[in-house]
Amino acid sequence: MVKGKVKGKAEERNQIALKMLQSNISIDAIAQFTGLTLKQIEKLQKAAVRIPKGIASKKSP
């Protein structure tokens, strides 16, 4: 049960960090507010896949 809570909190911090990245908040500020390391934030940033709106719904010819 404790492992689940720890995993849930880590996922929540990651989601908050991703939202902060999307809002163009500096990595240093994100680290300060979330407790994540710069390396963790950079890894999240690289893993985040941004698909422009409309691309996923368009059918190819």
Results as ranks from 00 to 15, higher is better:
residue 20 M to L: 15
residue 20 M to S: 05
residue 30 I to F: 01
residue 50 R to K: 12
residue 24 N to W: 09
residue 28 D to R: 05
residue 11 E to G: 02
residue 56 A to F: 05
residue 21 L to F: 08
residue 3 K to H: 11
residue 35 G to L: 04
residue 42 E to R: 08
residue 27 I to K: 05
residue 3 K to Y: 07
residue 59 K to Y: 06
residue 32 Q to Y: 01
residue 52 P to L: 04
residue 11 E to K: 14
residue 21 L to I: 03
residue 16 I to E: 04
residue 48 A to N: 14
residue 23 S to H: 11
residue 28 D to K: 04
residue 36 L to G: 01
residue 28 D to M: 05
residue 44 L to I: 08
residue 5 K to S: 11
residue 20 M to Q: 09
residue 14 N to C: 09
residue 31 A to R: 04
residue 57 S to Q: 13
residue 50 R to T: 08
residue 46 K to Y: 07
residue 58 K to Y: 02
residue 29 A to I: 14
residue 34 T to I: 11
residue 42 E to P: 06
residue 36 L to I: 03
residue 39 K to V: 14
residue 25 I to Y: 04
residue 58 K to V: 06
residue 2 V to G: 01
residue 28 D to W: 03
residue 14 N to F: 12
residue 15 Q to K: 15
residue 1 M to D: 05
residue 40 Q to C: 00
residue 30 I to Q: 00
residue 26 S to E: 05
residue 1 M to R: 07
residue 6 V to E: 14
residue 7 K to C: 07
residue 40 Q to I: 00
residue 47 A to T: 09
residue 2 V to E: 03
residue 47 A to M: 08
residue 12 E to H: 10
residue 52 P to D: 06
residue 17 A to F: 04
residue 51 I to R: 13
residue 41 I to M: 03
residue 44 L to E: 08
residue 26 S to P: 01
residue 37 T to H: 09
residue 11 E to F: 11
residue 17 A to V: 02
residue 6 V to K: 10
residue 26 S to G: 07
residue 7 K to L: 15
residue 53 K to E: 13
residue 29 A to T: 13
residue 6 V to A: 14
residue 27 I to R: 08
residue 46 K to S: 09
residue 19 K to E: 15
residue 53 K to Q: 11
residue 9 K to E: 14
residue 1 M to K: 06
residue 10 A to H: 12
residue 26 S to Y: 02
residue 30 I to K: 01
residue 59 K to C: 09
residue 33 F to V: 13
residue 57 S to R: 10
residue 14 N to V: 08
residue 25 I to L: 12
residue 36 L to Y: 01
residue 35 G to F: 03
residue 30 I to N: 00
residue 9 K to Q: 14
